[in-house]
Amino acid sequence: MFADPALSLPVIFAGLMGLSILAYVVLDGFDLGVGILFPFAGNDERDRMVAAIGPFWDANETWLVLAIGLLLVAFPAAHGMILTALYLPVAVMLVGLILRGVAFEFRAKVAPPHKAMWNAAFFAGSLMTALSQGFMLGLYIMGLVWTPFTVGFALLTAVCLAAGYAFIGATWLIIKTEGALQKKAVRWARSGLYGVLAGLGAVSVASPLVSPRIFDKWFTLPDMLFLAPLPLLAVALVAMIHISLRHLPDSRDRFAYVPFVAATVLFAVCFAGLAFSFYPYVVPEKLTIYAAASAPESLAIILVGTVFVLPVIIGYTVLSYFIFRGKAGELRYD
């Protein structure tokens, strides 16, 4: 199968796109989550929360551009079908991304009386982005069909994804903060975990019920045995997060990274499950990655660039996280 580029290239690009989406959900997920947690924090704590994500958010958001770019370049027909079906939630998300992106800068630069307004814009933008992404996820699982039931389900996933982002944002704050704010972050993470569980439950029940094809994939032997580790792993990770949160914050600040790392693996496991459910479709039940793929000669030239550039991108991203490691201090230009 991999000898023929018309068959192997779509799989490679679907994989790259999946990785970009996963990187986006984890990385921008935690900084969107920090924005969603804004109303629960005190005024002085908000500057430290922004300092914990300030040097990273821009690069985090670039993974969304890469993911949508790969969808656009590798599966142009699917790109059009998905985005026109999701016209309004995409518009809401874009407005949210605009608001929070500019609020990062404005809140730090405007005259003090206007800061509260930009703090509100930062929260509202983060929440709008998270809700609309969750809504799109739900509608995608429902096959991109707009009926009262599918919209209801999408609204449920919208709330769950926002809770999930708030949860992973809280676990990030546990790493990057100390003292009273860290204690608060632990509490936020505990509450957020319930939202994650609700979302996991809803998606796991709904997707096999909506699509007989997905049902057969998960509940037929012998595939069922190969797939069993995924849900089992998810349960183990949730238990691990739950236990670690009960023991945090630690008096010597040990294990502060455990909830975030476990949450990242949990997100990856759930994402793998979803990806397996929908493969080989890029538009659920309508268009496969093979039918939607661009010309092999165009995909090949992108792949060459990607193979060289992606490791470099990952390299300097790691460098940036290394430079800004440790507890977040005050964000300063000097």
Partner: peptide, 17 residues
Amino acid sequence: GPLLAYEVLTAFFLEAV
């Protein structure tokens, strides 16, 4: 597609990071 992809790969991440 490839032109936009090269923009993301060679420019966006570089600037953002």
